[in-house]
Design a protein around this nucleic acid. Sequence first.
DNA 1: CGGATAAAGTAAGCACCGCTTACATATGGA
DNA 2: TCCATATGTAAGCGGTGCTTACTTTATCCG
Lengths: 228, 228
Amino acid sequence: MPISTKSRPGKTRPSKDTYHHGNLRQVLIDTTLQLIAKIRPENVTVRAVAKLAGVSSGAPFRHFPNRSALMTAVAEEAMLRLQEEVASSLKKAADKNPLMRFRAIGEAWIRWAVRNPSHFKVISDRSLLDSDASAAWRKRSQAIQAEGIRLLGEAQEQGLLPGVEIRYFHLAGRALVYGLARMYSDGHFASFGLDESRVDQIGESVLDAFFRVPVRPTKNHVGKPKDH
Amino acid sequence: MPISTKSRPGKTRPSKDTYHHGNLRQVLIDTTLQLIAKIRPENVTVRAVAKLAGVSSGAPFRHFPNRSALMTAVAEEAMLRLQEEVASSLKKAADKNPLMRFRAIGEAWIRWAVRNPSHFKVISDRSLLDSDASAAWRKRSQAIQAEGIRLLGEAQEQGLLPGVEIRYFHLAGRALVYGLARMYSDGHFASFGLDESRVDQIGESVLDAFFRVPVRPTKNHVGKPKDH
DNA sequence: CGGATAAAGTAAGCACCGCTTACATATGGA
DNA sequence: TCCATATGTAAGCGGTGCTTACTTTATCCG
C-alpha cells in the first residue's frame, strides 16, 4: 500500500458534526486518492467520493465545477510530490557529473511513479484532467524539463555526450522513463516476463542500458521481495 | 486524416435494406474506429456506435458481450496492422545489421502509432479492453517481442552491443518507443515545444539519440510542412 | 449584538450511459 | 414447408455527471 491515502497538504479534518463541513475541498481530494488506490481512476465516480466523504452527491460541485477539475486538483498534488522527489534525488547526486544527475531525474521519476501509483495514474491519463490543466501543473512540469536540458548542456560542454543532439537526447530520456512507468502502471510487465516487485531494480537496469553502463559482473540481482 | 476509418478486413456492406443487417459485427468495428478518430475512445459510447451504424442501441450486444469486447475487437485489428508494419519495415532493412533491424522495429512502431492514431489509442489504453484481451492479440504482440530479442542476440554475437544486457536493452527500446508514441498521442508534444507534424522526423532523431548515431552535420531539418 | 448576505450544504430530477429482458422478424436446414 | 435459431427492436433498470430549487450556517457590518 502506498502512502498516497494519507492526507498531507491540507489538515483534512473530516469532522462532519456541523452542517458545514469546514474543509470539504481538501477532504474530497484526499478521498479521491483513497478511491484511486482501490479502483481505476476512470471508474472513480463523484457520487462515490461524496458518499465516502459523508456528504450529498451534489456537494462536490460547490467546490469543483466538474469531475475533471477534481481530478486536476489531485494531479496538482501529484506533480508537487514529483517535484519534491526530483529535488531530493538531485540533492543526493550533487557530487556526480551532469549526465548522472540527469539520470537521477529519471530515477526520481520512476521511483515517484512506482511509489505513488494513484498519483501517477491521474497524471498520466490526461483525459481525466481539464483540457488545459492548471497553470501550477504546467509550471512544475516545465521546471523539471528545463533542469534536465540544463544538465545535458553541461554534460555536452564537458564532452560527455559527443555527437549527440541534446534536445532529442532529452526527449529520448523522457520518453524512456515515461514509457517504462506507464508500462508498469498499465500492467504490461507481466507480458514481458518482468517481476513487478523488482520494478526499482528493473528501472536501474533499463537506465543502465540507456546510458550504456557496462554490466557489472558481480551485480547482486536478488533484492528484497517487497517492503509493503 | 489517417486511413483508419476505411474498412479493410471485412467487406463492410452497411446496407440496411433488410431487417437483418448482414455484416453488423464488422460494421460496428469500423464504425467504432470512425468515432475514435473524432472523439476520445473512452468517450465512445455503444449507443453512439449503434446509432451511426443505423441499428438499435441493443443490437451491438448480440455481437459483443460488452463494450470492452467491442474495443478488444478493434484492438485486434490494430495489432494486426502493427504486425504488418513491422514485417514490412524489417523486409526493407533486410540488408542491414541486426541492431539496425532492431531499430527498424521501433521505427515501424512509431510509424504505426502515428498513422493509425485511433488504433494506437485503443491498444495503449488497456482499461478499455477485456482484462485478458484475446489470445490472438497476445500472440502477435509476443511475436514482435521475440523477434526483437532475437535480433539483439545476433547483435551481441557480432560485438555490436558490448557490455549491455540485451534483456534490458530490449525493454529500454520498447519503453522508449511506447513512451514517445504515447506522448504524441496524448498531446504532450506541445509542452515540449515539438511540432506534431514532424513526428516522423522527431522519432528518427530520438532513435538516433538512443542508438548514439552521431549528428549528421548536413542533415536537412526543414521537411515538408504537412501533408494533410 | 443582530440581521442581511453570501457560502455551502441537501434533495430531487434531467439526460445519458451500459446492459438486460421480452418480443418480433428473417434465415437456413430437415 | 416448417420450425429452431440467429439477429434485430423497444422498453426499462440502476447508475452516471451535473443542475436546479431550496435550506442551513457562517460572516460581516451598522
